[in-house]
Design a protein around this nucleic acid. Structure first.
Lengths: 141, 141
DNA sequence: TTAAAATCGGATAATTTTGTCCGATTTTTT
DNA sequence: AAAAAATCGGACAAAATTATCCGATTTTAA
């Protein structure tokens, strides 16, 4: 479904959101530990997210990552940053020319799934998921 | 979503079904041409499908591939043969321990998408798609 | 001012996926 | 019987994704 990079990105962002809500910045090793991901690879992903302005980084001792309080970040934004918008737009069968006017065999049937996926990712925000974490209702490992 | 191999598999199977309904066997180069795929790679995929008994091959001159008349093959069978059942069962975030009892942040929200996907793939059969091809309602390229 | 702890960025390595090549075998046709 | 047209299977190659390493820079604290 999503690339590994994207899975890590979502999990990392949920964790950073969780920490940020408690007014704490968190650093790479803490994040990697929390989401059980390879640290160096996770660092690359965090850079991408930072460049897309989805999070803030602080360099130096006591540095780390955080999400600004006023930010409302949807999963869709993260997915598009890391994996591009292919999952929301590309043909299920990978046909470049596929469209409503020139549909592939699956086009119409699959439209519902794609639409529902987009809807869910668009209206699920990091805050929602971080709150679940606080309630210990969910796991990131 | 699906691997390239799986995309090729579905398209190839639709085309072979289409030909088989007209009582024709089709061969590798014809298939690859019809679905615009690399022939040698497609050959590997057809072998997998044959070993899973989703199609029949005939060796030698006038050989090729065909699907037996009595077979009702769903897309789900093809997907599971090539990509495994991960897309229908694995956690969206790639968590091994994720389940209804120990859910990841996305678990409950995503359940609907996964269920709908499985439902569609299970009840879409090659015959349905091949019939669309006959009517020239759809494209495989 | 120096050491330590952190991000940053570039290079490289490992793994997986995608794709190619070729010799062997099978079957049909001449 | 020989040639041709096809699948079969194994080895190999290329590309993409995932993962690691390390030196440079920034910031804090001793």
């Amino acid at each position: 479904m999503f690339s590994k990079a994207c899975e890590y990105a979502i999990k990392a962002m949920v964790f950073i959101q969780y920490k940020s809500q408690q007014n704490e910045t968190t650093n790479l090793s803490e994040i990697a530990e929390a989401i059980d991901s390879p640290a160096a690879f996770t660092a690359k992903i965090l850079q991408q997210l930072r460049k897309s302005d989805l999070l803030e980084s602080i360099m130096g001792v006591k540095g780390g990552f955080r999400i600004l309080e006023n930010k409302q970040i949807s999963l869709k934004e993260i997915i598009i940053t890391i994996d591009g918008n292919g999952i929301f737009s590309h043909c299920v069968l990978g046909l470049k020319a596929c469209s409503a006017a020139n549909p592939c065999p699956m086009h119409h049937k699959y439209a519902i799934v794609r639409q529902e996926m987009e809807r869910i990712m668009q209206k699920t925000f990091l805050v929602d998921l971080a709150n679940q974490l606080i309630l210990k209702k969910i796991s990131l490992k």
